[in-house]
Design a binder for these strands. Sequence first.
DNA 1: AAGGCATACAACCGCAATTTA
DNA 2: TTAAATTGCGGTTGTATGCCT
Length: 286
Amino acid sequence: MGRAPCCDKNNVKKGPWSPEEDAKLKEFMDKHGTGGNWIALPQKAGLRRCGKSCRLRWLNYLRPNIKHGEFTEHEDRVICSMYASIGSRWSIIASQLPGRTDNDIKNYWNTKLKKKLMGSTTMAGAGPPPRAPRQNHHQHRPVLLPYSSSPHSNYSNFFPGAGALLQQSAEPLTLQPQDHYMLGSSGSLNPMGNSNGASAVQLQLLHATTAHRQLQSTIGQPECREGHHEVLPANNYTKPMTAHANSRPHTPTRDIFDFDADVCKRNKQAKPCVGNFIITVNTPSC
DNA sequence: AAGGCATACAACCGCAATTTA
DNA sequence: TTAAATTGCGGTTGTATGCCT
């Protein structure tokens, strides 16, 4: 039994929007907003379109303050830095560029910026954070770098790791055994040489909240166990086979590491918050 | 002028996450 | 608690346009 379609595919128009359709949608949105339901909107607005199509058209084209046209150098820099840091999370990147949509940025990246960067030597490895080798479970205690505001604060205020990512000289802190952390897959993989020649990767750290600590009583220590230290890129992350074989396939987007994600899903109040730390895992083998 | 190719970008699709009943 | 409905995201495709031969 498949999923019910969101609309009657035979009765909806597809393809480019006409000026008349745009006008209808805009007028309806100006008067009523979405009414909290995109699926029902086309019928109310007198449009023969799928609700998803209306939403996309509105968000990417019709809504006020959309910026079209050339990207500035500053925007280029933000996109590049964030892409290097968090990968193809276009909506997050778009949130740092007022007036730009995720679709816009995605298109811009795929058609122009990527090529531009590939042709230059200034951004080694401009691709998404590459998939890293798995870590040996019994080596390399993580070291924490304190987050500090950086010249890149324009986006680091949203994604705390992004600023620190570019700072290679932060003073390391040792992870205290009594603290509890989770590694966020929203972190970045950023190969950087360090002083002793070992390359390092950085991951955003999700600090355990009070709510999360409550989990200790039900599931035991939610500590950053050895098995959780795998260094994986922001995208392409696949769930380790060792835990929760029956759970849904792992999404590369909003997850945190394995059992934590599942426990949090079951226990809605126990969501961790994003902490202002970067974790660095030494990977001498690469 | 016509055909082929490259580029840009709007729009679609599938699926995971979230919300609602 | 569970299933259905809805939303949001990222990858991909389709098409219009411009350039080159």
